[in-house]
């Protein structure tokens, strides 16, 4: 079954130097993802979710083994090449939204497009479309401090989605949200996953998120403990 894997992780380990020795955060991980998945890394705190997500996002590199993301071997990417991968193919959503406070909602969403070669009109269309997906057109002129947590995270989703990346990596996106808002943003992401075929990979231990996942990969002590597809 040689279907084109979007992400393929082979015998990936990650060690961190601690004191004199080293701490193994990930141990011989093997995982494959195809296009359009809606999956999540779950597990207790310290199990290695963020570490793995960061490696897939080319923000970090493996100590051993390899992660091939959209055809690129992460361990072999130069800083330039990894920046290019993030710029063109990946979207990130953070627990803390990370919106730029002095810019409007519109400008925050536009931000990633400024690195791409796009005309002003193309950018405008893309930003409006992304804001439409998350239902924030009425708020385009607002600045982040005026938004609720749920609205802020929706801006962050629009920002991650605006360049229509192949893969969105979301680290604890609901950690600061209440049930209602979590529900909203998950519905939004699910819809984008369906409409645009964007793959989503979460790192979370939030039950509300886990309920939505189509594939749940449980990590424990840096190893894959369970990898289950959930049919709904």
């Amino acid at each position: 079954m040689e279907t084109q894997n979007q992400i393929s992780i082979n015998k990936l380990s990650k060690h961190f130097p601690v004191g004199g020795g080293k701490f193994t955060a990930l141990k011989e991980i093997n995982l494959n993802f195809v296009e359009g998945e809606f999956s999540g890394l779950v597990g207790p705190s310290g199990s290695g979710k963020t570490t793995l997500l960061n490696i897939i996002g080319s923000l970090d590199s493996p100590s051993e083994g390899e992660a091939i993301v959209l055809g690129r071997a992460i361990s072999k990417l130069s800083t330039k090449a990894s920046a290019k991968l993030r710029k063109e193919e990946l979207g990130f959503i953070f627990q803390s939204y990370n919106l730029l406070p002095v810019y409007t909602v519109y400008e925050n969403v536009e931000f990633p497009l400024l690195l791409l070669n796009m005309s002003a009109t193309e950018r405008k269309n893309a930003v409006m479309e992304a804001l439409d997906w998350v239902g924030l057109i009425p708020k385009i002129k607002s600045k982040p401090p005026q938004l609720s947590g749920g609205e802020s995270q929706r801006v962050a989703i629009a920002r991650a989605m605006v360049k229509k990346p192949k893969l969105v990596l979301a680290d604890e996106p609901t950690a600061n949200l209440d049930a209602e808002n979590s529900f909203h943003i998950l519905e939004t992401m699910l819809k984008l996953n369906k409409d645009l075929k964007t793959s989503f990979l979460f790192a979370t231990h939030d039950e509300k998120v886990i309920k939505y996942l189509k594939r749940k990969i449980s990590l424990a002590d840096g190893m894959v403990a369970k990898d289950e597809y959930i049919s709904k």
Binding site: K80, A83, F92, F94, F111
Partner: peptide
């Protein structure tokens, strides 16, 4: 820091 992190994440080079 938040801004710099974000800019790294969206693929701006250091």
């Amino acid at each position: 820091y938040g801004e710099v992190g974000l800019r790294l994440a969206i693929g701006e080079e250091k």
